[in-house]
Design a protein around this nucleic acid. Structure first.
Lengths: 175, 175
DNA sequence: GAAATATGAATGAACG
DNA sequence: CGTTCATTCATATTTC
């Protein structure tokens, strides 16, 4: 029986880089990585933040499970109609909580293509462990240099492309 | 003087009618309805306002989770009655880390990027340039500035010490 | 209007 | 694996 949690408080949160790598691997068609693969991935990701194989495994499981379908299509969570308020405004270009990775939009050349190739003397750096902020699906980028989601007051309303759907992240709600 | 955008609703808010129906169903049902049930409920609720299955699902999840969080230090034993009553509930003991504007306005930030340190002479990894936003309201860092009395749990997280196991039952997560 | 609170939503982890 | 739980984040709402 498992049923034992550690001090169970801290939930692993992927750093932007980790997420990026994970997404990439996921996209590469390599569905569920083998245990060996996981090990390697974990190793690589370790260089960008604290992580364990279990985290990687869970991530892939969740990703796959939740990447089923979007059965939505009808405005999902939007404005409540029925009462007052008829602001059919489509300007709600709130960026969710996008991680400013697009900043360093460098080619995949020396970026991090080989997930398991870098066997240098890289030490896990806690600096990579910055804030946490989940989400950011595969199809999300192209937002300028955004700071933190909460910084909206700060950045105000920069010229974001308002063409992206606010509710396109509505995948399967995991049931 | 920044930040003055009007709020555009982006999150679904149940209409009174919807809420009533939901509450009713919640009270009779055993908790989380199945996918099929959700569909039906959504269908029903759709007549009283814009809604999506995802919303219904979330609602039930939240409802359940929250009703299972009454008081934790009242001396009462497992008084786990979760019915219809979540009004004046003090959802949590965790503080709401408010974000003072002064914090947000940090232009350079004394706590800024010291991410450097190690100059990888061989493999420069731009991804490590994970700069941190002036805000970083997350659960890590910014111990001094944000120093809230409740930030006790903020400093620990998962960083350098591994006195704890991320998972204790993990040996073979089954592949 | 800012702070506090209520609550919808995202997601890592766990269970069967 | 599919589903459910728990935790946390973001935002709508209420209060002062």
């Amino acid at each position: 029986s498992i049923g034992h949690k550690m001090t169970a408080r801290q939930r692993w949160t992927p750093t932007p880089v980790q997420l990026q790598i994970l997404e990439r691997i996921f996209d590469q068609g390599t569905g569920t990585p083998s245990k060996q693969k996981i090990k390697e991935i974990t190793e690589e990701l370790s260089q960008h933040g604290e992580i364990a194989e279990q985290n990687v495994y869970n991530w892939f499981q969740n990703r796959r499970a939740r990447s089923k379908r979007k059965q939505q299509g009808g405005g999902s969570s939007g404005n409540n109609n029925g009462e007052s308020e008829v602001e059919t405004e489509v300007e709600a270009l709130n960026e969710k909580r996008v991680r400013p990775e697009s900043l360093l939009s460098l080619p995949d050349g020396n970026n991090n293509n080989n997930v398991l190739g870098t066997t240098t003397t890289t030490t896990p750096r806690p600096e990579d462990l910055c804030f946490q902020s989940p989400e950011m699906s595969s199809d999300l980028h192209l937002l300028g240099v955004l700071a933190n989601p909460r910084d909206e007051h700060l950045v105000g309303k920069m010229g974001l492309s308002e063409s992206y759907n606010l509710y396109d992240h509505v995948e399967d709600y995991g049931m």
